[in-house]
């Protein structure tokens, strides 16, 4: 377990200071396609920050996030022991990487200073037939986490916007409300995701990766949508119907024109990943999880 602990500390270091090659590749492609000078300038700084962080072994973002683990444990290994090892590794990594201490006690308001606390880090564990223990880690930034939305379909979405197009009046108000029917079908899902991205604007560090889940229980959908963010940008959804809707939604998001840094531009998202769980006849949840451009994830096989 000592070796596992050290492996997890290294995983923290790698995930905090570098982003996966598929994400970097997608950002570089977006940069070369970009035509808006503001977005292009922002992307240029984002890309130099990525290489600066990697070469100086410093965190890419000061928010080293909420650590979320998805662990597959071979039969016969104690889940409790793995959990204790993760917590110990978290304490050491906080000092060693370093990570920003992000765990705050709800009752006392005190920061625990070591990134551990109740349900912090978040650890999901499954048993596997494999001989290897697989540790997937996501360092989830909070700016993008805060933009997540849960929808219960069917619903009438109310979207508010500014109506004045021609002039930039200082006292303009969002006095233009539209009603969008989101029904229990893929078009309803698409409308929910567009609503979430429109409301997010540039607040959570675009270009985003968007995780979406459709399901029949609130926690099932939230878990699944976050899990989608672990998928490679270039992967294919095993379900063709979902692949199609992923591509359609990505295209529509990028038609919104929000752009990198939210100052206008071609690329608001680099990927949309959809997962689904069976639902109860009475329920149809659509959950949307955002990742900032710094989609920090990594795997340790032990």
């Amino acid at each position: 377990m000592l070796k596992l602990r050290d492996g997890i500390i290294e995983l923290y270091k790698k995930v905090a200071t570098s982003i996966p090659s598929d994400v970097e590749e997608a950002l570089k492609n977006a940069y070369s396609r970009e035509t808006s000078p503001l977005a292009k300038g922002s992307m240029e700084i984002i890309l130099s920050n990525i290489s600066l962080a990697r070469t100086t072994s410093r965190p890419i973002c000061q928010d080293t996030g909420f650590p979320v683990f998805f662990i597959k444990v071979p039969k016969g290994i104690s889940h409790q022991l793995v959990k204790e090892t993760v917590i110990e590794a978290t304490r050491i990594a906080t000092k060693k990487v370093p990570l920003r201490p992000n765990a705050v006690d709800i009752v006392t308001g005190k920061n625990t200073s070591d990134n551990t606390g109740d349900y912090f880090p978040l650890i999901y564990m499954d048993e596997t037939e494999d001989q290897s223990l697989i540790v997937d880690l996501m360092l989830k930034g909070a700016g993008c986490e805060n933009l997540g939305q849960t929808y219960k379909l069917p619903t009438e979405l109310k979207v508010e916007g500014y109506s004045v197009m021609e002039s930039n009046l200082p006292n303009a108000e969002r006095n233009n409300t539209i009603t969008v029917l989101a029904e229990r079908d893929f078009d309803g899902v698409r409308k929910c995701v567009l609503d979430a991205v429109f409301k997010a604007q540039g607040k959570g560090c675009p270009p985003y990766t968007i995780g979406v889940a459709i399901g029949g229980a609130k926690d099932q959908a939230t878990f699944l949508s976050k899990r989608q963010l672990m998928r490679r940008i270039t992967d294919n959804n095993p379900d063709n119907a979902l692949t199609e809707i992923e591509q359609k939604i990505l295209k529509d998001i990028n038609s919104l024109g929000i752009g990198a840094a939210g100052l206008g531009g071609e690329t608001t998202a680099i990927g949309v990943k959809i997962g689904a769980g069976h639902r109860h006849p009475a329920s149809y949840f659509v959950d949307v999880s955002f990742s900032c451009w710094a989609n920090r994830r990594g795997r340790l096989i032990w």
Binding site: G161, K191, L194, Q201, G202, L256, I258, G264
Partner: peptide
């Protein structure tokens, strides 16, 4: 840094939001 909201009542963020709202309306 870039000035995106000035002391004269202008906001670049609002400008982008307005633009994206028009595009959203077309798509939904």
């Amino acid at each position: 840094a870039m000035v995106t909201m000035d002391a004269h009542g202008n906001s670049l963020h609002r400008e982008i939001e307005r633009l994206s709202f028009e595009r959203l309306k077309e798509m939904v």
